[in-house]
Design a protein around this nucleic acid. Sequence first.
RNA 1: UGAGCAGACUGUGCAGCCGCGGCAGCGAUUUCAGCUGACGAGGAAAGUCCGGGCAUCGCAGAGCAGGGUAACUGCUAACCGCAGCCGGGGGUGACCCCAGGGCAAGUGCAACAGAGAUGAGACUGCAUUGCAUCCGCACGUUUUCAUGAAGGAUGCAGUGUAACGGUGGAAAGGCGGGGUAAGAGCCCACCAGAGGAUACGAGAGUAUCCUGCUGUGUAAACCCUACCCGAUGCAACGCUGAUUGGUGUAUCAGGUCAUAACGUCUGCUCGGCGGAUCUGAUGCAAAGGCGGCUUGAGCGUUCCGGCGACAGAACGCCUAGAUAAAUGGCUGCACCCGUUCCGCUCCCUUCCGGGCGGCGGACAGGACAGAACCCGGCUUACAGGUCUGGUCACAUC
RNA 2: GGCGCGAUAGCCAAGUGGUAAGGCAAUGGUCUGCAACACCGUGAUCACCAGUUCAAAUCUGGUUCGCGCCU
Length: 136
Amino acid sequence: MLFTETLNQNANFQRLYRSGAFCSLGSALIYVKPNGLPCNRLGITAGKKIGNAVRRNRAKRIIRAAYSAAELKLPIGLDIVVVARSTLPDQNANILTEAFCTRGVKHCCGVSSGEIPCTQNQKRKPGGKKSAEKQA
RNA sequence: UGAGCAGACUGUGCAGCCGCGGCAGCGAUUUCAGCUGACGAGGAAAGUCCGGGCAUCGCAGAGCAGGGUAACUGCUAACCGCAGCCGGGGGUGACCCCAGGGCAAGUGCAACAGAGAUGAGACUGCAUUGCAUCCGCACGUUUUCAUGAAGGAUGCAGUGUAACGGUGGAAAGGCGGGGUAAGAGCCCACCAGAGGAUACGAGAGUAUCCUGCUGUGUAAACCCUACCCGAUGCAACGCUGAUUGGUGUAUCAGGUCAUAACGUCUGCUCGGCGGAUCUGAUGCAAAGGCGGCUUGAGCGUUCCGGCGACAGAACGCCUAGAUAAAUGGCUGCACCCGUUCCGCUCCCUUCCGGGCGGCGGACAGGACAGAACCCGGCUUACAGGUCUGGUCACAUC
RNA sequence: GGCGCGAUAGCCAAGUGGUAAGGCAAUGGUCUGCAACACCGUGAUCACCAGUUCAAAUCUGGUUCGCGCCU
């Protein structure tokens, strides 16, 4: 991985779930947000819903293979978290790779150039919702 | 040929393209990045159910408490493990299963039902004695009445008994005969258990004889007997280490209390050690990094001892060490499989159709499951396949 | 990775071998002109599979699921 480090702290994952711009790739979801660093950071989530350790490891390998295929096309300076869904280990890896190279790359370029905004998810913060109503 | 038993092994293979992990080498060098090479998941890596190594803590010990194991002999570093053997149970058999010490040391519990539930009880009964009533009526006294009398019935009270009946998981050995007023191991034969003696065996135990001793079940109830166990776990532990708060801890200073309390040594007691507590100051610990981290009760072959588990000797080999966590992704071919589909062919059948028949092709599928300090076991999950040795049934010779 | 705890009606739960308490909710009935309140009823494979026992929610072993701790 040329310009990529691993994202391994729980706080960073929570930050992306809360305020990242997400996009569906069929059997996976991606959350993207700019990080201000001269490199990309990649995090992978394969939860207990997917299955046992063999299925989780296969999901992570497929995601990493898809990312490395699309890496040269991505802009630099992003945090990316990929969440696997339970149908991912049953599929052929080419399906996800193709989706990542087209829709995922488009989404990341949009976030990097500012066309897709990284909004706060207000459903998880009732306080923010109230203040917005007061302003209205 | 079919069914079934036990043991051992294996657990898809090959090629191409693209990748990953640490290691070694090359080149470069402050690093990063690069190239080459060999290596890179399992029989259960799983569950974390046992046992050990290793590490730290404590060490002034003793007793109690607590936990574990349970026929016997061995193997092992150790074991709730394994091997052999004994006893019991299951199967026609190969063979399989068993928490398999002691309720006959003591205590507890045994609902409901039942007469009675622990060495208990007297319901229905059986037998007998006394009293009362009635039946019976030879004979004696007698006008009648009444009284006595072989025997029988009913009721009440007492005595003996526990066979029979029903309840229950269990009713104080079982069954048969004798015996008795009726009964009872009261006596006898056989059987079951217990105790004792002798013989054999390393032992559990087995065989024979004697003794009338017969005192339910439950110890995966408390408990007793024998043996074993310090606690915590690699997030242990050692070195290094940025920022700030609480916390813990060490030292120093000051205040308060006082010989009893408190803290600590495993839970308690004795005992040992520390006076205790509050405030302030200073230092240390925790993120991360490095070590621990893979040469080990190691593996393979041969020989030898042992029924076997296992032990010994010689020679050879080095075989994963990740940390948001590598050991893969895709494609093609081969292999295996199919109450799928198509085609050809064979058999049965008049036809419809049928065949746990064969061949070829297409399609779908190929299990359970991923090292995390390391070993020895156990348990659980698992598509299939191979080999070896027994057993039963049928047929043929 | 290591250590520990739990599972009982839709929900909260008691239950130390002998008929599975109780509360809320649901539902049927009585009361009322109709409701509410009140009263009387109704409901459990004790997570699952074996074993010990005459008898297991309880005791023992295994499996599944859930939860906590290692600042």
